[in-house]
Design a protein around this nucleic acid. Structure first.
Lengths: 101, 101
DNA sequence: CTGTATCCTGATTGATACTG
DNA sequence: CAGTATCAATCAGGATACAG
């Protein structure tokens, strides 16, 4: 089922957050680290590599001293924005629903 | 962030599949067990209880001999259908994207 | 039929220290 | 700055047996 392709690619505790963070433009490793609160370096680099493999983001080494690396959403990566929007809207409803109890 | 409320409620390996399965109408425990291939009894009952707590499904005991239990999506539970649709559409695109490599 | 209890295993995560 | 290596801890999930 196609749903699971999406879930596999987007699941994990951080991918959606990382994508959301990159929606505002390219960021460097340390910037993402700062914005995505609570993630460890190891996990961040693994998530980034997976997302690069899945063509969601691009990785560009900028040859300064010391080097910096820029991560950006690909056009394809930007296509998950609707998903985030829908999830966000639904999550909002969920909060209301639960608070009725 | 609201996105995470949605993710928390819908995450886990099976919830989306269970919801999809219930989209076609109420089902009994053993029917869900049969339709959702690969799930264990323990995990199924835990997922169902969580979803009941989150008001996604309702649980009705039918007092036959032996007893049966009917699970149905609440109106609220049905509201996740758009999410499934979006995920499914995106998952389809994803498959195409990956196969280009 | 509809579950619960127990035990087990592999995957995920995180803290810390370290490298180029 | 941008990672990787290592180790320890946690946890989700599964098999099986059993109970109401």
């Amino acid at each position: 089922m196609a749903v699971h392709d999406a879930i596999d690619v987007l699941s994990g505790k951080w991918k959606i957050t990382i994508i959301t963070c990159l929606l505002f433009g390219p960021k460097r490793y340390s910037e993402i680290m700062r914005d995505v609160k609570g993630i460890s370096g190891k996990v961040l680099s693994r998530e980034l590599r997976e997302m690069e493999t899945n063509l969601l983001i691009s990785r560009t080494v900028i040859d300064t001293q010391p080097i910096t690396v820029s991560y950006a959403l690909t056009e394809y990566g930007q296509s998950v924005q609707p998903i985030i929007t829908v999830l966000s809207a639904w999550g909002q409803t969920h909060r209301e629903q639960i608070s009725k109890k």
